[in-house]
Design a protein around this nucleic acid. Structure first.
Length: 817
DNA sequence: ATATACACGGATCCCCTATTTCC
DNA sequence: GGAAATAGGGGATCCGTGTA
């Protein structure tokens, strides 16, 4: 029996003491297939150097005789093999120790206290990762597979009988084949409930959106016939119907937004309250929840995706949205928003509200569905590149992704995988001293004309590759021909023999370049996704080597990366300066400078020359030419502020960094005023228009003509209220919300405004009011603590005293209260 | 536990000293 | 007149949010 097959979801099970893998996927006609397979289970014992043949023979004998009786399960070493391998770049002799069950590897490893054995490795990958590494049946790739069809077979305890699939196949062989189309069957869902706390209220309705499928199921307000709305008797029937539809549509992906943290656990909790089963799994099993930093909901055979989690790792750093709410994210990616509806407790909803509520609920699923389609190319490419199941890839952070990539590419280097750090090791790493980081040039405040900006492409990544910086290439003692750098008063040496981590990174950067070029020639979503995934991966490598949880953690490599980068940019700065340009600013990997009368052509030729002198794969590129740029002083003191500047190019496009304009913890009014002031100054080259504009706004503010929404300050609550040592305004606002029994917790964006008070208050927090509270805004506060600080330093460049503009000569008495 | 360091700036905290208030 | 309360100055610290 030969069929074409694409693996989607992986799970493992035990049968007669052995591990098996159950892969759910599709065949080329879109039918659901289950593949059962197994693989050899083993780990590595790395031997000490220079052991005699006899000693090794004896050791093998001893290991072969190991038998264990742990946790009520009898197990033994099945066989052993001697191999020549590499570990951290060094040649080693290692024993491959085979066992019956993956779960026993750790226990067997614990019984290897022989003096001939130096290290034990490869028992902590997880069986699914181990399987993928061993059998190369990679997620979301097409295969031609051969095997035996299980038909009401008692093999594997009759697994095929209880499984809702077209065919169940026991795998014999597989061959990777050229890409076929795979259009996943997607079902988005969203629930509405009365209470936000999991399981506390009743679920009122559930919406489902798939291809040519839209449905709201509800047991509320059943009076009117509405398209797409289906009525049921009560909550229990609602849950039943939901399961029925999911089973009928049988999607590859069940997609929610924040559904790990809300929808799926809520459904599960309500099912329990109604004493029923939520048997969504293809094997009729209920969703399983694993507790991590966030709860994760897994459904057997159907990949449950919480889009929010993927957005957090794959997109958030490049997004404009201030929060990752469905509304803002949909608005940024789809140009569509949630339906307007003010959620109230169902007991307070009027007849006519319900129809709106249903619409609102349905549209959330529509947005989720469309977002998934938009992000599918990225999810697909991430999965193919990391070679881990899409369920995990959609939830993993970038450091985990880097590690997955490394683990799945070790074989080419004949490398034995490093182990995860122990608890003690992690805490030691977390308490290490910080190493010195990037260089930031102190700018001289002012308005500048005709500038250029260069930056290093994949700066830290190219440093790691060019200087071969990694755990396996770090030298314990200096060697003659090596890369060396001084950092933190210590000199570090790295071998010139390419290490596998820098080599992999080199490939990643090369691939990124190639795909970027291909994308430019003929753009499409897949190429864009592929190019982007490699870019993210390359950028995460540096952070990975300095991350305390990493298998290939190397503090020295991370410190050396920063140090080499610092040295490189300082050298380039000097060269640019010597060539007759004037440096204005520099931060980490970018340099802004005045052309000083030189032409663009000259400058580009100079760039070429600079590049020819750079080591390894390091490369400078032109970020752009700019007509004007402004740098300001710090709030305190006269020195120039770092990480704050604004540029305008020839087309009038501005690039604003660090200013309050781009900070969400400033009120919109202050941000807009500052933005407009910056835009006008950059466009005109002087401050006249901007001054006029500010005067107008100040007048409006004093006359209370500014709507309150413009004055809302938003600050995130980063931890539980009780943990705050300093009670700042947003903590007070959060407390107020808590008193009103509004749902509040770590991670929420708190909104408040500063109001007038009768008595003279000293602290800002004493004037905090929630947006819903009555009260006039505090004119003095917004003038002096929001508008003034936002523009004072900008006008200072022109020697304008902003205080005078703001106070106005006639209005002096206003502050005297 | 879920990548790194550098940087800004508001608001509070906290210590000190001077001034005011109270008896 | 002397002790206690209060004000306010200023550096340290907390905190959130940026840049790279």
């Amino acid at each position: 029996m030969k069929i074409k097959f694409i693996p989607v979801d992986y799970s493992s099970f035990d049968w007669q003491g052995r591990n098996y893998i159950k892969i759910i996927g599709r065949n080329d006609s879109g039918k659901r297939i289950c593949v059962i397979d197994s693989c050899p289970v083993y780990f590595w014992a790395i031997l000490k150097e220079n052991l005699s043949k006899e000693k090794i023979e004896k050791l093998l004998d001893k290991i072969n005789q190991i038998q264990l009786d742990t946790k009520g399960r009898k197990t033994k070493v099945e066989k052993t093999e001697l191999h020549d391998k590499n570990f951290l770049g060094k040649k080693v002799r290692a024993i491959k120790i085979f066992a019956t069950n993956y779960k026993d590897l750790h226990d067997i490893a614990d019984h290897l206290g022989f003096p001939e054995i130096e290290l034990r490795r490869g028992y902590d990958l997880g069986f699914i990762t181990h399987y993928i590494l061993e059998k190369k049946l990679l997620p979301l790739n097409w295969y031609e597979i051969e095997g035996e069809v299980l038909n009401n077979s008692f093999e594997f305890g009759g697994i095929d009988m209880g499984l809702d699939v077209e065919q169940c196949i026991k795998l014999k062989s597989s061959k990777k084949i050229k890409l076929e189309k795979f259009i996943p069957n997607v079902l988005a869902y969203d629930i509405e409930a009365d209470e936000l706390k999991i399981g506390e209220g009743e679920i009122l309705m559930i919406s489902l959106v798939g291809k040519n499928f839209k449905k709201v199921i509800t047991w509320k307000n059943q009076n009117k016939k509405i398209p797409n709305v289906e009525y049921v008797k009560d909550e229990a029937e609602l849950l039943e119907k939901f399961v029925e539809y999911v089973r009928k549509i049988s999607p590859d992906f069940l997609v929610g937004y924040f559904s790990d943290g809300f929808d799926l656990p809520y459904l599960r909790a309500r099912a329990e309250k109604n004493s029923m089963r939520l048997n969504l799994g293809l094997d009729e099993s209920q969703p399983k929840f694993t507790r991590g930093i966030t709860i994760t909901g897994k459904i057997n055979g159907i990949v449950h995706i919480d889009l929010l989690r993927f957005i957090q790792t794959a997109y958030s750093q490049y997004m404009q949205s201030e929060t990752l709410s469905l509304n803002e994210v949909a608005s940024e990616f789809l140009g569509d928003t949630k339906k307007e509806f003010k959620i109230k407790h169902s007991s307070q909803l009027k007849e006519k509200d319900w129809e709106k509520y249903f619409e609102y609920n349905l549209h959330d699923s529509v947005l989720t569905y469309q977002l998934f389609q938009k992000m599918w190319p990225d999810l697909l490419e991430f999965t193919k590149i990391m070679q881990e199941p899409v369920f995990d890839v959609s939830r993993n952070g970038m450091s985990k992704n880097v590690e997955s990539y490394i683990l799945h590419n070790l074989e080419r280097f004949n490398e034995i995988p490093e182990k995860r750090p122990t608890h003690d090791e992690i805490s030691k790493r977390r308490h290490r001293e910080k190493y010195e980081g990037a260089f930031v040039f102190e700018p001289i405040p002012g308005l500048y004309e005709n500038l250029a900006m260069f930056d290093f492409t994949s700066s830290y990544g190219s440093v790691i590759v060019s200087y071969n910086l990694s755990k396996s290439t770090l030298l314990t003692k200096p060697e003659k021909d090596s890369y060396s750098i001084e950092t933190g008063g210590k000199k570090l040496y790295f071998s010139k023999k390419p290490g596998f981590v820098p080599e992999m990174l080199k490939e990643i950067i090369e691939k990124r370049k190639k795909f970027k070029k291909e994308l430019k020639q003929k753009p499409d979503a897949i190429k864009r996704a592929r190019s982007n995934a490699f870019k993210l991966l390359a950028n995460a490598y540096y952070g990975y080597q300095g991350f305390f949880g990493a298998r290939y953690y190397c503090e020295e490599a991370a410190a050396a990366t920063a140090a080499f980068a610092k040295k490189s940019i300082k050298e380039v700065i000097e060269k640019i300066d010597k060539a007759g340009y004037k440096i204005v600013y520099s931060d980490t990997d970018s340099i802004a400078f005045l052309l000083n009368g030189k032409s663009k052509k000259q400058t580009l030729e100079f760039l070429k020359k600079l590049n020819s002198q750079l080591p390894g794969i390091m490369e400078l590129e032109l970020e752009g030419f700019f007509k004007r740029g402004i740098w300001v002083t710090k709030r305190t003191g006269k020195i120039g502020a770092k990480k704050k500047y604004a540029l305008i190019d020839e087309k009038g496009k501005t690039k604003i960094r660090g200013f309050e304009t781009v900070r969400r913890d400033w009120c919109n009014l202050a941000r807009q005023v500052q933005n407009k002031v910056i835009q006008q100054i950059l466009k005109e080259g002087n401050e006249k228009e901007a001054v006029k504009y500010v005067k107008e706004i100040v007048k409006k503010l004093k006359n209370r003509e500014i709507p309150k929404e413009q004055l809302i300050i938003k600050t995130q609550l980063k931890k539980p209220i009780s943990e705050y040592k300093a009670i700042s305004p947003h903590v007070i606002a959060a407390k107020k919300m808590q008193e009103k029994e509004l749902p509040i917790g770590a991670g929420n964006l708190i909104e408040y405004f500063i109001a007038e008070t009768k008595s003279k208050k000293k602290l800002v927090r004493e004037m905090v009011k929630l947006p819903t509270e009555k009260g006039e805004y505090n004119i003095k506060y917004y003038l002096e603590r929001q508008i003034l600080p936002a523009i004072e330093n900008i006008f200072q460049v022109f020697n304008i005293n902003t205080k005078e503009i703001i106070e106005g000569k006639k209005q002096m008495t206003l502050w005297e209260f």
